[in-house]
């Protein structure tokens, strides 16, 4: 069953397009990874879907869920979907919580909105949610303010708040990027555990392929406002076909064995104000030809089930062992 169906989603800021037609389906219960370097439009995709971009953003296309379109639906449609059907957590948990309200109040607010709980009932449920996400001494810490929690604990509070609405889909926008390594692993473990218990779907936004490999069923790779490769996890990790996906893998620092070598992708993500003609990745691509510089490849389904937007993909034969990445 498809939970969310995104069709031709485009976003422009002050006339500058940053998202060029995203198509993406999220099914119930699945975990989809959205990867790409910073600035590729991963966050904008979901902020646009939930109507969370500033007013200057021009959004077109459709985001269908629960029988309504979020792009054209307006505030009342968005308010019923947000937090209830689709919840979202963010990159910097410490600034994502309101500094002048107690964390208990902030969780209770979601409980009131989506489950009609108030007073003692809301408080009891907030305590059990905090307990659930691994905040020790939850009954007391409910009355503390966000600045009295560490970054990792703030993210746990954010997760508790997201769970309060019993969403069908959780958008986790780089939920571990701002945290240190051990905490990252804990939050990832918590997310998968919670997902297993509740059966909710998750979109996991990250530039960390290792984390994506650990939690996701399906992965969409974004570059310069487009999806350039999309596949189930195993085929993608076994044989990345788009040179950009391949480049992302080669740039992962690996500590296993002597052959490991860190090869960063040359150059940087193009500025949306002057994206190259043709394939946006072509100026950085070792496989690019003159065709790539003038024509833009479209995202086409491949025989092995993946979708790919490239004229000269990495040959499927060059299988590289990627087990290390799944760790």
């Amino acid at each position: 069953m498809t939970l969310v169906r995104i069709r031709d989603l485009r976003v422009a800021f002050d006339g500058v397009p940053v998202l060029h037609g995203i198509n993406l389906d999220i099914s119930a219960g699945e975990t989809v990874g959205l990867v790409g370097e910073s600035g590729c439009g991963k966050s904008v995709t979901w902020l646009a879907a939930l109507g969370l971009l500033p007013a200057k953003a021009r959004i077109t296309g459709t985001v269908e869920t629960a029988g309504s379109d979020l792009v054209s639906g307006g505030r009342s449609v968005l308010e019923t979907i947000r937090g209830g059907r689709i919840a979202m957590i963010f990159q910097d948990p410490s600034s994502a919580l309101n500094p002048v309200r107690r964390v208990g109040q902030q969780i209770a607010e979601a409980l009131r909105l989506h489950r009609g709980l108030r007073g003692a009932a809301a408080r009891a449920e907030a305590i059990s949610l905090l307990d659930r996400v691994g905040i020790p001494d939850a009954a007391r810490r409910l009355d503390l303010y966000p600045h009295e929690f560490s970054g990792g604990q703030c993210q746990r509070v954010m997760i508790a708040m997201a769970l309060a609405g019993q969403p069908d889909l959780l958008i986790a926008d780089e939920p571990t990027t701002a945290l240190d390594a051990t905490i990252q692993a804990q939050i990832l473990a918590l997310l998968t555990e919670v997902q297993r218990e509740t059966g909710m779907a998750m979109v996991f936004i990250s530039h960390d392929l290792g984390a994506v490999g650990a939690v996701c069923d399906r992965v969409a790779v974004m570059y310069a406002g487009r999806i350039v490769e999309e596949a189930r996890r195993e085929p993608l990790f076994a044989a990345p076909r788009h040179p950009y996906t391949r480049g992302l893998f080669d740039a992962i620092p690996r500590l296993d064995g002597p052959r490991s070598r860190l090869v960063p992708i040359p150059g940087t993500v193009p500025d949306p104000k002057n994206t190259p003609a043709g394939c946006a990745f072509s100026p950085r691509c070792a496989r690019a030809t003159s065709l790539c510089a003038s024509e833009r490849p479209t995202l086409l389904p491949q025989s092995d089930g993946r979708a790919l937007a490239c004229f000269h993909p990495v040959p499927a034969a060059t299988l590289v062992s990627r087990e290390g990445v799944f760790a």
Binding site: G51, R82, M158, M161
Partner: peptide, 11 residues
């Protein structure tokens, strides 16, 4: 960011 969080939870 916390304003976006509040909106995202349906306030």
């Amino acid at each position: 960011p916390y304003i976006r969080t509040a909106l995202a939870k349906g306030v």
